[in-house]
Structures are given as structure tokens and as C-alpha cells.
Deep mutational scan, measured.
Amino acid sequence: SEFSSRSGYGEYVQQTLQPGMRVRMLDDYEEISAGDEGEFRQSNNGIPPVQVFWQSTGRTYWVHWHMLEILGP
């Protein structure tokens, strides 16, 4: 990996993601499973900070930056 740390990767995702971009989950996290795909909606200063609309659940759920792989527009 070109990223030395999880936080470095998270910063990359945070700087790159734009609303509407497709993402894939890298880790299991509460209701969301690794491999689930969705659409980035928004972020804020909460914890976790990233709101994604997940195809698997049909609704939005908040996750962490480093848990997401960017699939593209």
C-alpha cells in the first residue's frame, strides 16, 4: 500500500470523495459488511463522520473514512 497508516489513507479518502461518488466498504462495521457498495452523501464533524447510502440496507448509515474504497463517480 502507498499509505503508511490508516489515518493517512483516511485523509486521502476524505480529500477525494465528492457527493454522489460510489464507494465499497473495506471492513465489517455494525450493520454494514465488507464488500457492501453505496453512494457517498455527506460528511460532518461527528463520529463516525461519513454518511453513505448503502444498497444492501436501502438507507444511509454513518461510517469512518478509512473503511471506504472509492469506486468512482
Rank of each mutant, 00 (worst) to 15 (best):
E11L: 12
G20V: 04
N44M: 01
R59G: 09
G46E: 14
G8W: 08
R22W: 11
D27Q: 13
D28V: 00
D27P: 01
H64D: 05
A34R: 13
G20K: 00
L68I: 12
T57G: 09
E37W: 02
I70V: 09
Q18F: 04
R22I: 07
V13H: 08
S43D: 15
G72C: 08
S1H: 08
H66R: 05
N44A: 14
W54H: 06
D27W: 11
H64S: 01
G35P: 07
Y29D: 02
Y61V: 14
G38R: 03
G20S: 07
P73Q: 11
Q18P: 08
L68P: 02
D36S: 11
Q42C: 15
F40M: 05
Q15S: 12
V52L: 00
G8R: 14
W54Y: 03
I70Y: 03
Q15W: 04
F40R: 08
I70D: 03
S43T: 05
T57D: 04
L68Y: 03
T16M: 13
T60V: 11
H66I: 05
S43R: 02
F53H: 10
D27T: 10
Y61W: 07
H64T: 00
V52C: 15
Q51R: 01
M67W: 05
Q42M: 12
M21W: 07
V63W: 00
F53G: 03
E37Q: 10
Q51I: 02
E31L: 07
A34I: 08
V50W: 06
G20N: 04
R6H: 11
W65C: 02
Q15Y: 11
G10S: 10
L17I: 11
W54V: 04
R22G: 06
S5G: 11
D36N: 04
Y12C: 06
D36M: 09
R22N: 03
Q55F: 13
R6E: 14
A34E: 06
R6S: 12
Y61N: 10
T16R: 13
S5Y: 12
Y61C: 15
Y12S: 11
F53I: 13
G10P: 09
L17M: 12
G8Y: 14
E2I: 15
W54M: 12
S7F: 04
G8L: 12
F53V: 11
G72A: 14
W54D: 00
G35R: 02
W62R: 15
E37N: 02
E37H: 08
P19M: 05
G72I: 02
I70T: 00
L17W: 00
I32W: 01
G10C: 12
G72E: 06
G35E: 04
Y61K: 15
V50K: 02
G20Y: 04
R22D: 07
N45W: 04
G35L: 03
G20D: 02
V52R: 00
V23S: 01
Q14E: 09
R59Y: 06
I47H: 14
G8P: 13
R6M: 13
M67K: 04
Y29K: 00
P73E: 09
Q18S: 09
E2R: 10
D28E: 05
L26G: 02
R6F: 11
L68W: 02
E69I: 04
Q55I: 15
P48N: 02
